[in-house]
Amino acid sequence: MQIIQPHYHGIARTAQDYERMAMSGVVAVAEPAFWAGFDRAYPETFLDYFRQISEFEPTRAAQYGIRHFCWVAVNPKEAENPALGREVLRHMPDFFRRPTVLGVGEIGFHKTTRHEEAIFEEQLALASEHHQLVLIHTPHLQDKVRGTRRTLEILRHMQIEPGRVWIDHVEEHTIREPLEAGYWVGLTLYPITKCSPRRAVDMLEMYGRERILVNSSADWGPSDPFTLQECICEFRRRGHSLQDAIEIFHNNPCRFLGQNPKFDIKPIRITEE
C-alpha cells in the first residue's frame, strides 16, 4: 500500500529509516520546521536549517525513492524570543518560492505565552499574505486544551480560511472543535506522550475520514516513524477496506498538501481488492 507520512522530521532520523519506510510503502514525507532541542541564537542558524530541509534533505529521501517536501517557520518554543523570530520571518518569503516548500509550519503555542501569540499571529499574517498553507502545532500534555482553544480563537479572529489550515496533535479531548469549524486535524502517533495507533483508529471510527491526517512526527525524541504503519495495520485489522486505508493514509495528505500545486502526488483509487 502507498503511504504518505505528512509530518516527519527527517533530519533527526537515519538513512535506514528512509530505507525501511520506502520498503513499507512510504512514497512521500513532509518535514515541518521545528525545535532543535536547544534554542538557536542566530537568525542565520534558522536559515541554514531551512536550506537543509529544502535542499539537502530531499536528496537523502530521493536515494530511497521517497519524495520530500517541507515547511518553514519559527517554532512555538523559539517564538519566546520575538526579536530573533521577526528577523527569521523577514527571510521566510524567500523560501516560499523554493520548489518543495509547502507553507508555514509548524507554528502555534507551546506554553501559550504573550510572545508566542505575537509571533503566531505574525506568521499567520505572513502565510495569508503569501497564500501559503498553514500547519499548527498544539501544545503537549496539560497545556493542550488551553493552547488549542486559544489557537481557534486567533484563527477565527484573523479570518484564516479553515480548509487551508492543519491543526496537528489533536486527541480525544481536542479533535471535535477544529473539525466542526472546518479545519484539517492531525493525529500524531507517539509511543507515550501523544496518541497511540489504537486510539487514532478509534477516532477515525468516531469522526470519519474527512479532513483527518495521521502522522508519526518522528523526531529526535522518543518516537517511531513506523507507528504510522502500525496504525494502518490496526485500521485494517478492524475490518476496514484497503481503499478506506488509502483514503486516510495516502489520499488525505494529497488532498490537503495538494492545495499547494508543488505537491503533485494525486489521490489513487484501487480498482479491485
Binding site: L141, E172, P191, I192, T193, S196, R198, R199, D202
Partner: peptide
C-alpha cells in the same frame, strides 16, 4: 507519563 499513557489506553478500550 508511562502511567498516564496506560490509563488513557484503558479508558479508550472501555470506550
Amino acid at each position: 507519563l508511562d502511567a498516564r499513557c496506560m490509563l488513557i489506553e484503558i479508558a479508550a478500550l472501555l470506550d
